[in-house]
């Protein structure tokens, strides 16, 4: 019903256009994450995940408080991924700073109104810059990196015990392999034979300080993960057929982790000028903003963004 109205390629392009427009109007943003992640999130939502229809309004409600005994109406943003029913999958976005890209994906797949993005990072809005648990499409609070896979493993183990068919997917970033908890999570999945948990990791080789190799080398991620007990598949993060094939890798009794090797300036080649400082692209001058605007608009086949009057 929600599936296949658009191709996954179209959705990925739509995500990049939305994030680009947003970054232009706001003089910066998590732009590089749209380059690296668009196909992965488009593929998850448009093809791989089995989700029910959204249970929360298309136009996100304002912030309604944090979990507290005095806030009985509290709910997370999970409803944008459909109801919690035994056959439906769940998705955790572990690097919560990818929220802008995740929100753009919700819009592209018809789970959130485009107005939702206008609320991004606005005071009093639930559409937070670092996705909070109450933000659209967010199911648990991540953002402190390295906790997503463990939570997913626990949920997956519990669901399996209850005989639920739904899987638990985690969207991960490669920076997370520097955190010890990631390894504890894989070890635990292997020990308890948790094979209804699946992860796709955006291996863009970037982190806040720049190229990961210059910050803290992590070596051969695949070999390390296999030693800890995961089944690992690899693909080009911009090749959807390769992604589809990777997801078919058998992994009985073990978690599946897809390493999606991405290009942090894919489809926006001018961003390479900013390498290796791509984590949060804030335009340094009006000239740079204007040049990026025309170049990226051209690459995405749209008109330059009219950002006069924005901030």
């Amino acid at each position: 019903m929600l599936k296949n109205e658009k191709t996954t390629e179209e959705i990925a392009l739509g995500i990049r256009r939305r994030v680009f427009e947003h970054a232009m109007r706001n003089n910066g943003g998590y732009l590089s994450q749209a380059c690296s992640a668009a196909e992965q999130l488009a593929w998850l939502y448009n093809e791989e995940l089995t989700l029910g229809a959204p249970t929360l309004p298309m136009i996100p409600k304002p912030f309604e408080g944090v979990p507290h005994v005095d806030n009985p109406e509290y709910h997370t943003g999970a409803g944008y991924n459909g109801p919690f029913e035994p056959d439906f999958d769940r998705l955790f976005i572990a690097p919560a700073h990818y929220a802008l890209v995740a929100y753009a994906t919700l819009i592209e797949v018809g789970r959130m109104d485009p107005e939702g993005l206008e609320m991004f990072n606005k005071d009093g809005s639930s559409v937070e810059m670092i996705g909070a648990e109450h933000s659209p499409g967010m199911e648990v609070h991540n953002g402190t990196l390295g906790i997503g896979l463990s939570t997913a493993a626990g949920l997956a183990w519990g669901r399996k015990r209850r005989g639920e068919k739904g899987k638990v997917w985690v969207y991960m970033s490669d920076g997370e392999v520097q955190e010890g908890q990631t390894w504890e999570a894989i070890q635990c999945c292997a020990h308890h034979k948790i094979d209804n948990v699946k992860a796709i990791m955006d291996v863009n080789r970037q982190q806040c300080d720049g190229a990961m190799d210059s910050v803290m080398e992590v070596g051969d991620i695949r070999a390390k993960m296999e030693h800890f007990g995961a089944v690992v598949a690899e693909c080009d993060a911009h090749d959807l057929n390769a992604m589809r094939t990777a997801a078919q890798t058998p992994h009985e009794g073990k978690p599946l982790i897809i390493l999606a090797h991405s290009n942090p300036f894919h489809a926006m080649p001018i961003l390479e000028e900013r390498f290796p400082r791509l984590h949060y692209v804030r335009f340094k001058s009006e000239d740079e903003r204007a040049r990026m605007n025309s170049s990226i608009a051209d690459a995405l086949d749209i008109d330059p963004i009219d950002y006069e009057g924005a901030h």
Binding site: A132, H141, G143
Partner: peptide, 10 residues
Amino acid sequence: GITTPGGMTH
């Protein structure tokens, strides 16, 4: 404290 817009985790 609240000098960051990053929410609970920050």
